[in-house]
């Protein structure tokens, strides 16, 4: 654990340095012009930070959803929070309120969360399977609504499509700070429940009789996960697969306790996302960009294919 932790921290530092140095414009660190210094400080650094934080937020939210749903394939997609946040963002685009996108995304995400929560709780108890189904329904419904809004507005289509694929062009120090606070607070809250989260992997009776307040813990984890997702979508659009892949890889490395999974996922998510964003802004020439969601989803898709073919056992271990 310690070793993995330190190597991930080292990797993260390396990735931040690499991603800050590389970009559409090449910068010589030791002979910087004023413009280059400005680019480094106001464009690139906030972007690297934001992508890292969004990666952490998504990985942590995916992990929390997996605990709440008791399903290793749960993430912000399957729970519908991602799609409902995106729906909020698209409404903002359609209304021409671009600067309010994060707020709308948050509102959409929280609405989605409340709906899924209400549907899936029976007499105050959350049913993981119902929650998964409710999430899929919400996801489908939100996607349909987004398609409808796309249809209504041909001119804003490319703006909407971009939102559905994500990107970090719009990074700013303010966003970085806001997300930093959200991620840190979530981490501190989650940290208080490491042992409880582990015990959630038992059946409910065992967990309850161990002294874990199962419903309260699920509620709290679900809310935090949804909050993290909504912030990520609000700042960077929908970016798929991160919440699924990162915790999965870490579990495959035999880290299965929450006290290991949570910090390693946060670090791993940051490394993964910074790397993806670096690709998105350097793969094409002349400063052209690719939406980062395309890259994460293709890397994620290939990785899952590999898991399905080579490591079925690990994938299905969770009965």
């Amino acid at each position: 654990m310690k070793k993995a932790m330190y190597s991930l921290i080292l990797l993260l530092i390396l990735m931040v340095v690499l991603a800050t140095l590389k970009g559409a414009v090449s910068i010589d660190l030791f002979h910087m012009s004023n413009t280059e210094r400005d680019i480094l400080l106001f464009v690139r650094l906030p972007r690297v930070m934001l992508s890292g934080l969004v990666g952490s937020a998504l990985a942590l939210s995916g992990l929390l959803f997996q605990y709440v749903m008791k399903n290793p394939l749960a993430d912000s997609f399957t729970t519908g929070v991602s799609a409902s946040s995106a729906m909020g963002a698209v409404v903002a685009i359609l209304l021409g309120l671009g600067f309010l996108i994060p707020l709308f995304a948050l509102a959409g995400g929280i609405t989605g969360l409340v709906i899924v929560y209400k549907i899936s709780s029976v007499r105050g108890r959350v049913q993981p399977i119902t929650m998964l189904l409710a999430g899929i329904v919400l996801s489908t419904f939100s996607s349909a609504t987004i398609s409808f809004m796309k249809f209504l507005s041909d001119d804003a289509v490319s703006s909407i499509i971009f939102w559905l694929m994500g990107g970090f062009q719009d990074a700013s120090v303010k966003k970085v700070l806001a997300l930093l606070v959200v991620v840190m607070l979530s981490f501190l809250l989650v940290r208080r429940h490491y042992l409880g989260l582990d015990i959630l992997s038992f059946d409910d009776t065992t967990a309850l009789s161990s002294g874990v307040e199962v419903d309260r813990l699920r509620k709290e984890a679900f809310f935090l996960a949804a909050l993290l997702t909504a912030f990520s979508v609000g700042y960077a659009g929908i970016i798929g697969f991160v919440g699924l892949i990162v915790p999965h890889v870490i579990r495959l490395m035999r880290f299965v306790k929450a006290s290991e999974l949570v910090p390693l996922s946060i670090l791993g998510g940051a490394v993964f996302m910074i790397f993806n964003d670096l690709l998105s802004r350097t793969l094409l020439s002349e400063g052209q960009e690719l939406p980062v969601g395309i890259i994460t989803s293709s890397i994620g898709g290939l990785f899952f294919l590999y898991l399905l073919i080579k490591r079925k056992r690990e994938l299905y271990y969770f009965d």
Binding site: V25, G287, L290
Partner: peptide, 10 residues
């Protein structure tokens, strides 16, 4: 063209 802001500046 989807472009990096830093490219515009440079």
């Amino acid at each position: 063209v989807l472009i990096s802001p830093e490219r515009v500046i440079s």
